[in-house]
């Protein structure tokens, strides 16, 4: 039995990199997919809307933990055993795409209908209207809830530890198994998660305040 030392903190920080990579990949790819889903959901096609809705509701209404198990062990049964990072990334991408799609759909719908109409009357095409008129306005409204979701994504990336990916949470578990000092180990992990998330929360607050000012009057 050894005790929790500086080396372990260093090890946790190394593993934190993987938490960050995982979150960034899930956010960027899941975000791109989510944006596309949000656009489909607010477009005219019933069929597209229906398909997008099935996808979104499936991932919104099942636990992320179960999704990760399905992707890692479930696909593994059929011979598609994905490497842990890939399995975790795929799970978090699907999860992020569903939640971001719904957040952004709300933002798109909150842009007044008259904006669409004014652009339509200027002979812009539907895609031009989305890209130049609706999405830029939706984006400003979207920043605070999106950052809020990013914080949630960082915290939930800890679930990737269950599919064998060595990120911050799994590293902490491993150190605890060697040291039996759970309070120190997990407090240290909690502090690292806090240091990742707290600045984002503050940033989101600031955006929110700026938005209040710029939309006044």
């Amino acid at each position: 039995m050894r005790s929790f030392g500086l080396n372990d903190v260093w090890y946790l920080l190394i593993a934190t990199q993987w938490t960050i990579y995982l979150t960034v990949v899930a956010f960027l790819v899941g975000g791109a997919l989510g944006l596309w889903l949000a656009v489909v959901r607010t477009g005219g096609s019933r069929f597209g809307n229906g398909l997008a809705l099935v996808w979104i509701r499936s991932f919104q209404n099942t636990p992320l933990l179960v999704q990760l198990f399905l992707i890692y062990y479930g696909l593994g049964l059929f011979g598609f055993r994905l490497p842990p990072f890939v399995a975790a990334a795929v799970g978090l991408i699907c999860y992020a795409s569903a939640f971001l799609a719904e957040i952004w759909r709300g933002c798109i719908l909150s842009v007044p209908r008259q904006q669409w109409e004014a652009a339509d009357a200027l002979a812009l095409t539907p895609w031009q209207i989305r890209w130049y008129v609706i999405l830029p306005q939706a984006l400003r409204i979207a920043i605070p809830p999106t950052v809020g979701f990013l914080v949630k994504l960082i915290k939930n990336s800890s679930l990737a530890s269950v599919v064998g990916m060595t990120e911050l949470m799994r590293a902490a578990t491993a150190i605890n198994n060697a040291t039996y000092q759970p309070f120190k180990v997990f407090l240290c992990a909690a502090i690292i998660y806090f240091l990742l998330c707290f600045p984002l929360t503050m940033l989101s607050r600031r955006f929110e305040r700026q938005l209040d000012v710029s939309t006044r009057g």
């Binding site: 904006q115 004014a118 306005q137 400003r140």
Partner: peptide, 11 residues
């Protein structure tokens, strides 16, 4: 066309 509520693009 010009509308009652102007409908300029605020961004």
């Amino acid at each position: 066309i010009v509308f009652q509520a102007y409908n300029l693009f605020p961004h």
